[in-house]
Amino acid sequence: MLAEHFELIEAIGLNLFFAFIFVFIGLSINDVMKKNDVPKMGRFVVYFVLFLGCAGFIAKGIIQYVWESQGVG
């Protein structure tokens, strides 16, 4: 059974790894900004850019899923 679902397990593991990395980067950036007293506008910009990076991976996953379900990819 494991050999049959290896690709699915690999995809889920990779997505969880990316989620962990984004959370870890967010916590690291938060710690650095708190220690250096960054203004609220600067924090907003940094979190917005981090969110855009995360949203890009989510959009890629959605587009990939739609294309594969339609037989394009």
Rank of each mutant, 00 (worst) to 15 (best):
M1Q: 08
M1K: 04
L2G: 12
L2F: 11
A3P: 11
E4G: 08
H5S: 10
F6W: 14
E7W: 09
E7N: 07
E7A: 06
L8W: 11
L8N: 11
L8R: 08
L8T: 15
E10A: 12
E10G: 05
A11C: 11
I12G: 15
G13D: 10
G13W: 12
G13C: 09
L14D: 11
N15K: 08
N15C: 13
L16C: 08
L16M: 08
L16F: 09
L16N: 02
F17I: 07
F17E: 09
F17T: 11
F17P: 01
F18N: 09
A19I: 14
F20T: 08
I21K: 05
V23Q: 06
F24S: 10
F24Y: 09
I25E: 00
I25R: 03
G26C: 01
L27V: 03
S28P: 03
I29G: 02
D31G: 13
V32L: 14
M33D: 07
K34M: 15
N36D: 12
D37Y: 06
V38R: 00
P39V: 15
K40N: 10
M41V: 15
M41E: 03
M41H: 06
G42C: 01
R43C: 03
F44H: 07
F44Y: 04
F44W: 07
V45E: 10
V45Q: 11
V45S: 11
V45G: 07
Y47V: 00
Y47D: 02
F48C: 02
F48R: 02
L50Y: 01
L50R: 00
F51I: 03
F51W: 05
L52A: 05
L52S: 09
G53Y: 08
G53A: 01
C54V: 14
A55N: 01
A55F: 01
F57R: 03
I58S: 05
I58Q: 01
I58K: 02
A59I: 03
G61N: 03
I62S: 07
I62T: 05
I63D: 02
Q64D: 12
W67D: 12
E68S: 14
S69E: 12
S69Q: 09
Q70D: 13
G71W: 02
G71H: 03
G73I: 15
G73V: 13
G73W: 13
G73N: 08
G73Y: 13
